[in-house]
Amino acid sequence: MFTGIVEELGEIVSLAWEGDGAKVTVRGPVVVTDAKHGDSIAVNGVCLTVISTTGDTFETEVMKETFDRSSLGSLAPGERVNLERAVTAATRLGGHIVQGHVDGVGTIASKKPGGGWEDVRILLPEGMSRYIVEKGSITVDGISLTVVAVDDESFTVSLIPTTLELTTLGRKQPGALVNLEVDVIAKYVEKLVAAQRGAE
């Protein structure tokens, strides 16, 4: 489990493809300080398992399912990624409950500078808007953000200067792909309501 508060901007070092999957090496001096085999680290919002560490890098294995459901397959060596270690029992929950399980891939439609911030509109995969509400939480590339507005096809978030400086969203331009994770509570509520209606 994560909070959506990015700890550092890491870097993809290499992708060694093995059939449909790949071993991915990521540079992250902060997150690797106490990382060990079996630990979870979110890479652009995708929960990945550490299989080894060397110096300031860690290696993880990414399977086809993960590539199919996220934007990780489009990454290349040298690209920057958002990194966050899993929470501990003593961690402040500064963002919201994030599982690191990507629900779909969105596309940045536009970026509009404001008075010290930037409004970003992101196109949604079909059917995802029902889980998103104004002033609710959403995770974009592992970043916990508050929804400003939402319609059937897109949603908007406003990024403060710190988010623009310390995460990949400050660098990504219209057309870029982003991993999206909706609030898991919305999905549970939908399932419970559907089950109740089916029992009536």
Rank of each mutant, 00 (worst) to 15 (best):
M1F: 13
T3I: 03
G4R: 05
E7S: 01
E7D: 05
V13E: 09
L15I: 13
K23L: 14
K23Q: 13
K23A: 13
V24R: 11
T25I: 13
P29S: 14
V32A: 11
D34M: 08
H37F: 15
N44H: 13
N44V: 03
G45W: 02
V46H: 02
V46F: 08
L48K: 06
L48A: 03
T49G: 05
S52Y: 06
S52C: 06
T53N: 01
T54R: 14
T54N: 13
V62K: 03
V62D: 02
E65Q: 10
T66Q: 03
F67H: 05
D68L: 12
R69K: 14
R69F: 08
S70Q: 10
S70F: 03
G73K: 07
L75K: 15
G78V: 12
G78C: 09
E79L: 13
R80S: 15
V81G: 01
V81F: 10
N82H: 04
R85A: 08
V87H: 09
A90G: 05
T91F: 09
T91Y: 09
L93K: 05
G95S: 03
H96S: 10
V98G: 08
D103F: 00
I108E: 10
A109Y: 08
S110P: 07
K112V: 12
P113I: 07
G114M: 06
G115W: 00
G116A: 08
E126V: 04
E126C: 04
G127T: 00
G127M: 02
I132W: 00
I132V: 09
V133W: 07
E134P: 11
K135Q: 12
G136I: 03
S137T: 11
I138S: 00
T139A: 15
D141C: 07
G142N: 00
T146L: 05
T146M: 03
A149N: 14
D152H: 11
I160W: 06
P161D: 06
L166K: 15
L166A: 11
A176N: 10
L177W: 09
N179H: 01
I185G: 03
E190T: 09
V193M: 11
A195P: 08
R197W: 12
R197T: 09
R197L: 14
A199V: 03
